[in-house]
Amino acid sequence: MRSPCSAKDHLLDLDGIEIAVRTWGPEDGIPVLALHGWLDNAASFERLAPLLDGCFVVAPDLVGHGRSDHRRHDSGYYLWEHAEDMLAVTDSLGLGQFHVLAHGMGSGIASLLAAMTSGIASMIFLDGMGAPFTVAEDDRVQHLARAYRLKRMVRRSQLQGFAEPDVSRFDSIDAALLQSRQRLDGELSEAAARLLGSRDLLQVGDGYCWRHDPRLALPEPMPLTEREACELLSEIRCPLYLMFGRQGAFNGSGFEQRKAALPGHAKVSWHPGGHHFHLEAPDRALVDQILRILARHEGGALQRLVNE
C-alpha cells in the first residue's frame, strides 16, 4: 500500500451557503463522494479515505454540521435538502460521474441522490440502510404538531445549545468529547471521538462550544415515512453494496426490517466493529473490498492498481 495521502480543506460558496469540504487523493483519481452520518462531519473518513489509493475522496460537512454554515432559522434540515446540496457540490467540482461512500444517515441522503441523478457509478453504505429517521403513515400529522411544539419550547427555554452562539458550553475539550461519546452510548472510542470533535469544536474564550447547529437534534417536522424510505431503497438502480458492523446499528432486528426493501442486485457484507467501524480501525480487508468495488465499476488505472 502507498503512503497515506494528506487531506486538503476547501470552502465552497453555494448560493450564499458556505460548505466546508475535505478531500484526499489526486484530483484526477476515481471520484468518491463521502457522506457522513448524523451529527458527524467529514472527519468520519479521516482514517479510511487516505487508504483508498488512486481515489479522489470528497467529504463535505453537511450543512449545519462541522465547519459548514447553518441554515436560516426559518429553515430546517431535511434529507432531500442535503441531497440537493451534495448535487451542487459535485456540480461545482465538475464531477459528472462519481461513486458514493455513505455512512449512517448519509445512506439516507444517498438513497435520495440515486433518485435525483443518473451520475452515480456505484454506492457503498457503511452501517446504513437508507433514511434513519422515519414516521408511521398514520402518525404524520401528530408528529408534525409535536415537532413544532418542541421547536417552540426549546426557543423559549433556551435549552443547552439554543442560547447565543458565542456562549461557551464546555470548560474543556474532554468535557465536550464526553458528551459526544455519551450520545452514542460509549460506542465511539475516545480517539475516534477526538477526531470528529476536532472538526466540530470552536474555542470561545476559555471554553468550547459545538460548531454544529443544535437544531439538528430536533425531529424533522415532515420526515419520510417508513414506506417512502423503503421505496427509495428498492428503486436504487446503480450497483449497491451494504457493509455493516457486527456490533453496529443493524446487528439486531434493524436489518431484517428493511431487508425486503433492498433491490435484488444489492450485496451485503459484515465487518468487525460497531456503527463507526470505518472510523475506528479500517482494516486491510475493508480497504481492499472497497477498492475492488470501485475498480469493478470504474476500470482504468484503478483496475490496474488493484491487479498489481
Rank of each mutant, 00 (worst) to 15 (best):
P4W: 07
S157R: 15
G130I: 08
A102E: 07
G106N: 02
C5Q: 15
A261R: 06
R296T: 11
M105G: 11
G37R: 12
R71C: 09
K259Q: 15
G16S: 14
R304S: 13
D15L: 00
T117S: 09
S75W: 13
E187N: 11
V58Q: 07
Q160M: 14
V89Y: 13
I19Q: 10
Q257I: 02
R211I: 00
I19K: 12
H212E: 11
G264Q: 08
G94P: 07
L12I: 05
M129T: 10
A121E: 13
A121I: 01
V135M: 04
M1V: 07
A176P: 00
V32R: 01
F162P: 01
D91L: 00
L48K: 01
Q179W: 11
G252I: 02
D283M: 04
G128A: 09
C238P: 00
E84G: 09
S122A: 03
R258M: 12
A110M: 10
V58G: 11
S3T: 08
P219W: 06
N41A: 11
P60F: 01
V141F: 06
L195E: 05
A285K: 14
E46Q: 15
V135S: 00
C238H: 13
P132C: 12
G108H: 07
L144A: 10
S198W: 02
L150P: 07
S3D: 14
V167D: 03
D166G: 12
F45E: 05
I290P: 05
S107N: 04
S253T: 08
H36Q: 11
P26I: 07
R246M: 05
D127R: 05
G130Q: 06
D28W: 09
E235S: 14
Q203L: 04
A281C: 06
